[in-house]
Nucleic acid binder design. Structure first.
Length: 818
RNA sequence: GCUCGUGUGGCGGAAUCGGCAGACGCAUCGGACUUAAAAUCCGACGGAUUAAACUCCGUGCCGGUUCGAGUCCGGCCACGAGCACCA
């Protein structure tokens, strides 16, 4: 009887025989399979973990049997907010709870029986790991890819603390006290991911990733081509001067330079540093009040508001670069400082937002584009069309005008072609304790000083008060904060923040390859040989963040000559989500959780694994159901019965059996094809079909032919990746003394798949009339004769005449009748 | 609002390049075995009209292309996801 005891037996044997070990002598056949590592939460291993790990493990096992040298490591994404919040609530230190959770989760993961390379195990909260986060930070800093600037963070004035975006409710209030969250400026560290925006976009098509995920990244990067146009600015009739006393040139970004003659005003973002310069004394009070108001409202609150357009006149005027017309300059929060130049040229006739604003503020609206169709359209007309009232450009199409105006403005020094991105640089500072300390000190004499690599790791102090009171917990640890400047030896302060945990996960796939390295994050030659990851599996929720950051860091490391390839993950699959039986996300509060531990001890891990493989489409997921558990449980015991019967039966010589050969080879072909595509449910279905046949074939006899016996062994080999412990046990029962995973994966025989007779459908005008068994290679003419001889032939035609015969070999014959 | 995805029996889900819709399984019903039940095995199982179907209808809805459409095209509807004043 298959049970969890069988699991334990084989898990021990696999450990003893080092089944999961990677043999570096077979590098040419290497296959790096990786599932996204997990956060070691205090809750038990849940169905989602199993769904993430078990099916890809089956895939990896099959690939091993197909001759690949598989490397499948496992680790823990151990830094982060939950442990810290737990600590705030219970007083248990994040390090203590995390290490304990890692211990528990490791034990649980082992019950899964994954072919994991435990030797490569890593946890990101280990100083041996995060010292290399710090090392990475220093390299990025050295290469100008890490920099510090002032940026707004979510701030709760009541709790006096910084909040992560997830801690801000939909209505813009704090999740703890429901006070309205505001923005506060802090000087923070950024990684310059925007330097790679173009490459991140360009390398996307060649990746074997889900199209949807590529689309999400494309949108996230948000490349848009347009032009900058330069406007001079006047205040009280005199040109505005910049800091160097030169006339200020106000640059705007637009994708619709063809509407340049329709500009009736300009808008500058309230957060723009240029704003004070462009404000008249008369308007200063109201502009400052407006800017202040904008700062207070969080981004989310801005969205929640009914989006009524608000804004204030600055008192300044912009000069149209071509017509020299004076255009009022407004400030309004519908313009964002961080996109484009933070200033827009407003064309109310051809932009919905400008139209609304002009309407509210009673600003002029000047149409300069008419529909090419000649049909009148209501304003705002935002599509491409034909220019009117546009000086020398009148009559051109929008496309032509964009080219002409960009060229002409550039010639005059009044503009140029520009590409803008939605992607922002990656803010990596977190005002939190449980993370990687930033390896930088601030010295009064030397300024911002990176730690020398020899000073790493800069360890996270254990004894820290991490209660939330508005300051980074590390800032309150005087022993941590006070240090010496590595340059001048004078007193200096450390950075009180820690790094975003996405830094940890942006390069862990390389550390796995060389996880014990004490000299470097990894050995370049080893990583070049083992990477990129050949198959990466994890949730789609990481489409934009983790997967983009990891791609960026890979490119940055490549440019530092640390590795020689462009992309970290060549192929990617997202598993679906397993929901509760009620269709809701599994949660303790909903009372719809399923405990893998219990099911595994009750049924055995392979039953649980098979259920996940068989009852769900892997990339879709779905609602949990116990029903399928019974189905696969039955499947397993039927195989067990069959194997026992086969073993105890008298063997007789093989007799030619074309049907059996066809079925076996059909199963090999389709089970393999489907499993390679992560379509495990149909793989299992094909195995069930073969079992059904073998069971019937052996039902009424106490002897078994040699070829039927061989077919049963083939079924076991095909089943092995999907029910590994059980298949090993059956393999042993059939007298084998070596692991079933040492067997070669069967290859189908094309010849066996050719049948002598095939069933085809006979249709009249596409409607099925009957089905016929016919010789596979029948001549079309003979088939037509045969059909004409059918008794019902005249009835089918019902007085119509056949005008055409369409024969699709092996499938159907369709008679077109009129 | 924009973009993308999905929609197939009572249920989970199959269906190659446009070629027999519903594989495989669950549930249900009937039968065998049993004193009985469970387990197991055999059979039926989209709907309708039926004596029976090789009859008619049927892949969210409406239309189109085609000898032939779950699959391709156009237009809707519903659900889900991503982005969200991005100039």
């Amino acid at each position: 009887m298959y049970s969890v005891e069988v699991d334990r037996k084989w898990q021990q044997k696999w450990a003893d025989m080092k089944l999961a070990a990677f043999n570096p002598k077979r590098l040419d056949k290497k296959l790096y399979v990786l599932e996204m590592f997990s956060y070691p939460s205090s809750a038990k291993l849940h169905v989602g973990h199993w769904f993430n790990y078990a099916p890809p493990d089956s895939w990896a096992r099959m690939q091993k049997m197909r001759g690949y040298e598989v490397f499948q490591p496992i680790g823990f994404d151990a830094f982060g907010l939950p442990a810290e919040n737990y600590a705030i609530k219970t007083g248990i230190h994040p390090e203590d709870s995390t290490l304990k959770n890692i211990d528990t989760m490791t034990k649980q993961l082992k019950t899964l029986g994954g072919m994991f390379n435990w030797d490569a195990l890593l946890a990101t909260c280990d100083p041996d790991y995060y010292r290399w986060n710090q090392w990475l930070f220093l390299q990025l800093y050295k290469h100008g890819l890490a920099y510090r600037k002032n940026a707004p963070v979510n701030w709760c004035p009541d709790c006096q603390t910084v909040l992560a975006n997830e801690q801000v409710m939909d209505d813009g209030t704090c999740e703890r006290c429901h006070t309205e969250v505001t923005k506060k400026s802090l000087t923070q560290w950024f990684f310059k991911i925007t330097a790679y925006a173009d490459e991140l976009l360009e390398k996307l098509p060649a990746l074997d990733w889900p199209e949807k995920t590529k689309k999400i990244q494309t949108n996230w990067i948000g490349r848009s081509e347009g032009a900058d146009a330069v406007f001079a600015v006047e205040l009280n009739g005199a040109p505005v001067l910049d800091e160097e006393k030169n006339p200020l040139a106000l640059s705007v970004f637009t994708t619709r330079i063809d509407t340049l003659y329709g500009v009736t005003y300009l808008v500058i973002a309230p957060e723009s540093p240029l704003l004070p310069l462009l404000t008249s004394e008369a308007q200063r009070a109201s502009v400052e009040a407006y800017a202040e108001k904008t700062k207070k409202a969080s981004e989310i609150a801005r969205l929640a508001a009914t989006r009524e357009k608000t804004g204030v006149f600055t008192g300044a005027y912009a000069i149209h670069p071509l017509t020299q017309e004076k255009l009022p300059l407004w400030t309004a929060d519908y313009v964002i400082a961080s996109y484009g130049t933070g200033v827009v040229m407003a064309v109310p006739a051809h932009d919905t937002r400008d139209f609304e604003f002009a309407h509210t503020m009673n600003l002029p609206i000047k149409p300069v584009i008419e529909p090419s169709s000649g049909v009148d359209e209501p304003l705002p007309f935002v599509e491409y069309g034909t220019l009117k009232d546009s000086g020398p450009y009148t009559g051109l199409s929008s496309e032509e005008a964009i080219a002409a105006l960009t060229r002409d403005l550039e010639a005059e020094g009044l503009g140029r072609k520009v590409v803008s991105y939605r992607l922002r640089d990656w803010l990596v500072s977190r005002q939190r304790y449980w993370g990687t300390p930033i390896p930088i000190v601030y010295c009064d004499h030397c300024g911002t000083v990176p730690l020398p690599e020899s000073a790493l790791p800069l360890t996270l102090p254990y004894d820290v008060a991490f209660s939330p009171d508005g300051v980074s917990p590390l800032a309150k640890s005087e022993t941590f904060m006070n240090t010496e400047c590595p340059v001048c030896g004078g007193p200096a302060r450390r950075d009180p923040d820690t790094l975003d945990t996405f830094v940890c996960s942006s390069w862990y796939q390389f550390r796995f390859v060389d996880s014990q390295n004490k000299e470097a994050p990894f050995d370049t030659a080893k990583v070049n040989a083992m990477c990129p990851v050949d198959m990466y599996v994890g949730g789609q929720e990481h489409a934009a963040m983790h997967l983009l950051y990891a791609r960026f860091i890979t490119k940055a490391l490549r440019d530092m000559k640390m590795l020689d390839f462009d992309e970290p993950f060549q192929a990617l699959v997202h598993q679906g989500m397993i929901l509760g039986s009620d269709g809701q996300k599994m949660s303790k509060s909903a009372g719809n959780t399923v405990s893998p531990d219990e099911l595994v001890s009750q049924y055995g891990g392979d039953i649980f694994r098979l259920h996940l493989l068989f009852s769900f489409a892997y990339t879709e997921g779905g609602n949990w159901t116990d029903d399928g558990l019974l189905a696969v449980s039955r499947f397993i015991s039927r195989i067990e019965t069959l194997v026992q019967k086969a073993v105890s039966s008298r063997k007789t010589a093989a007799v030619p059996d074309k049907d059996l050969a066809y079925r076996v080879n059909y199963t090999i072909l389709h089970a393999t094809e489907d499993a390679l595509k992560f379509q495990f449910n149909t793989t299992v279905a094909r195995l069930m079909e073969l079992l059904n046949h073998l069971q019937k074939a052996t039902a009424n006899s106490d002897s078994i032919t040699e070829n039927t016996y061989e077919a049963i062994l083939t079924l076991l080999v095909l089943l092995a990746p999907f029910a590994p412990h059980f298949a090993e046990e059956m393999w042993e029962v059939t007298g084998h003394t070596t692991s079933i995973f040492a067997e070669a994966w069967p290859v189908h025989d094309e010849k066996a798949l050719i049948r002598d007779e095939v069933e085809i459908a006979v249709q009249i005008n596409g409607q099925i009339k009957t089905r016929l068994m016919i010789p596979r290679d029948i001549e079309e003419a003979d088939l037509i004769e045969q059909i004409k001889e059918q008794d019902a032939y005249a009835n089918w035609l019902a007085g119509r005449q056949p005008v055409k015969w369409i024969f699709v070999r092996g499938r159907l014959l369709n008679i077109v009748a009129k």
